[in-house]
Amino acid sequence: MSQPEVLNQAFELGYTYTRSTGPVIGRFLTELRNRNIVGIKASDGRVVVPPMEYDPNTAEELSEFVDVGQQGEIVSFAWVKEPREAHPMDVPFAWAMIKLDGADVPMIHCVAAPSEDAIATGARVQVVWADETIGYITDIRCFELV
């Protein structure tokens, strides 16, 4: 029995989902498009970013949007040495929990830094906006060290 050559073929399976944002995330993304970041005030007074639709303690509907700052502090981070195709940057970067000024909970986003040594818990960062904002989380291209 002769064995023919090994046959390989690229194959891509795509699910072209469009997702509804709901009113609260919709507002958050609309504000991002305007280069502004909003959180929402919970019943205990904490400002939650990104905003959530229902109170984490009482489950009441939330509606009090609050502008937060475009700078913040790194609460924790993970350095990505070898970015993969789906990652937001093609050079090493950090995923970080960033507590924006005026917010009481951190938000995950990426941080551009020259090296792992340059970044630390407690470091100050600020937003870098995308050249064109479209109402998507990537309107924040990344955060950079202040």
Binding site: V6, N8, L13, Y15, T18, R19, S20, G26, T30, Y136
Partner: peptide, 19 residues
């Protein structure tokens, strides 16, 4: 401006299929 109500969130699974 119109309020954002949807986001495109496609998922692409890239395979190398060996027969």
């Amino acid at each position: 401006q119109e309020v954002v109500t949807v986001v495109k969130a496609p998922v692409y699974l890239k395979y190398n299929f060996t027969a």
